[in-house]
Structures are given as structure tokens and as C-alpha cells.
């Protein structure tokens, strides 16, 4: 009976958390479309999410592309299939590794920062102060961040895709001895619009997930510095898990036959 009771409690707690997150997301989306539109804050957040994440995402992308080319070569050489490397690199980067790694990196950098910032605002009564100044925190803080995440991560991933493919190109040309023109020709020949589009759709979803969970955990933090630290950890962990889960779902939607 005790086990059943605990199982029931855990299930209820999970459902409550999902319900609260869903309501928070719905309210955030509603405020994206409800005036006043705070374009300046959106632009600032886009710079924060996109521009300042570019170095870490770019580094991740270039090394991933390089390793991918190197690993594929050592594996494919066993079957004399080295010529497939350009295709493997471009499809892996655009469909999967670009959006997923960028999402995870942004979750660690931006999601954590949002949770810490909004969490600190919660524990220092700044969120209450906003309300007393006739300003809804969902409209002033959450909606601009959600919109920035939705719009900016695809742009960031598009750049990361190019950098990642370039990483594979560099290793293939300068280390593995590929012909540059042939490599680029094979890359472009094999790449389909759907590969890029699916990656960008994933990026948009991941941007939403990262900013939503950063805002959600920050908004509901309590208990001072420890609470803010907990909110930051929760934001990164839950965003990372949801990115990986939703990655499967979106892949299924795009590519299942």
C-alpha cells in the first residue's frame, strides 16, 4: 500500500508540474500576440540568445563537423565507402547535430541565465514591483524571451550548420585528401531542402523549450539564493531532457514513412 501511495503521489506531482508548465506556456504565448509589443526587449533578448551564444555554438559545431568527418572516414574505410563522407557530414549536421548541440549549448548558457535573472527578481520582490507598476511580468519578461528563443535559435543553427559542414570540409580536404570541388559538389548534390527545414524547425522548438523552462523555473523559484540555484539547475536539466525527447518526436513527424 505504501508503494502505491508513493507512486500515486509522484504521479500527481508530475501531472501538477506538467499542468502548471502548460498553463505558463499558454500564458506566455498569449502575451506574445497581446499588445503592448515590447520590440526593444525582444531585440535585446535576440542578441543575448543569438549573438552572444555564437562563439560557443560555433566552436561546438566546427569540432563536431571535424570529428564527424574523421570518425566516418575511419569507419567507412572498412567498406571502401569513404566517398560518402560529405553526405554523412551534411545530413548529420543539418538534421541532428546542429540543432541538438546548439539547443543544449543554449540551454546551458541562456536557459540558466534566464532562470537566474528571473529567479533573483522573484526573491528580491522585483516581480511584485512590476505588478505594482501595472506591468504584467508575463508580458514584460516572459513573452519577449519566448519570442526571441523561437526566432533566434533557427538563425543560430543555420550559422552552426554552415560552420559544422565547414569543419568536416577542412578535415576532409587538409587531412583526408579529398578533392575540394568534389567534396562541395557531393555535399550540395545530396542535401535536400527538408534536411535543412527539419533542422530549423527543431531549432525553433528547442529555442522555445529553453526560454520557456528558463523563465518558468526562474518565475517559480523561492527561498533565496539556494532557490535561485535550484531553479537554474532545474532549467538546464529539464530543458536538456525535453530537447532530446522533442527531437525524437519532430524527427518522427518529418521522416517516418
Amino acid at each position: 500500500m505504501e508503494t502505491l501511495r508513493r507512486l500515486g503521489e509522484a504521479t500527481l506531482a508530475l501531472l501538477t508540474a506538467v499542468g502548471r508548465l502548460s498553463l505558463f506556456a499558454a500564458s506566455g504565448i498569449f502575451h506574445i500576440f497581446k499588445p503592448p509589443f515590447r520590440w526593444k526587449i525582444v531585440l535585446n533578448q535576440m542578441i543575448e540568445v543569438g549573438f552572444y551564444s555564437l562563439p560557443v555554438v560555433g566552436l561546438t559545431a566546427i569540432f563536431t563537423g571535424m570529428v564527424l568527418a574523421l570518425q566516418s572516414y575511419t569507419g567507412f574505410a572498412r567498406f571502401s565507402a569513404e566517398s560518402a563522407i560529405p553526405q554523412v557530414v551534411v545530413v548529420s549536421i543539418t538534421r541532428e547535430l546542429g540543432p541538438v548541440l546548439a539547443g543544449l549549448m543554449v540551454a546551458g548558457r541562456v536557459g540558466a541565465a534566464m532562470a537566474a535573472e528571473i529567479g533573483t527578481m522573484r526573491v528580491t520582490e522585483q516581480l511584485d514591483a512590476l505588478k505594482t507598476l501595472s506591468t504584467n511580468p508575463m508580458s514584460f519578461l516572459v513573452a519577449p524571451r519566448l519570442l526571441a528563443g523561437l526566432v533566434t535559435l533557427p538563425i543560430l543553427v543555420a550559422v552552426a550548420d554552415v560552420i559544422g559542414v565547414m569543419g568536416g570540409y577542412l578535415v576532409s580536404i587538409y587531412k583526408l585528401g579529398f578533392n575540394p570541388a568534389t567534396y562541395l559538389h557531393n555535399t550540395m548534390q545530396f542535401l535536400e531542402v527538408q534536411d535543412v527545414v527539419s533542422g530549423l524547425v527543431k531549432a525553433s522548438a528547442f529555442g522555445f523549450i529553453v526560454t520557456l523552462l528558463g523563465c518558468y523555473h526562474g518565475y517559480h523559484s523561492k527561498g533565496g539564493a539556494q532557490g535561485v540555484g535550484q531553479a537554474t539547475t532545474n532549467a538546464v536539466v529539464t530543458a536538456s531532457i525535453l530537447i532530446l525527447c522533442s527531437n525524437y518526436v519532430i524527427t518522427e513527424l518529418f521522416f517516418s514513412r
Partner: peptide, 22 residues
Amino acid sequence: RADRENLMAKFGMLFQGGALFD
């Protein structure tokens, strides 16, 4: 909620810790 936000225009509030937007 909208009327409540409008009502807030009548209010001024000094918070214990200041609650300034940093």
C-alpha cells in the same frame, strides 16, 4: 485583471529591499 492593473496607477509602493530593477 485589466481593471486591477489600472487601479495600480493610484498606488505607489516602497518595498522593504527597494526591489529596484537591476
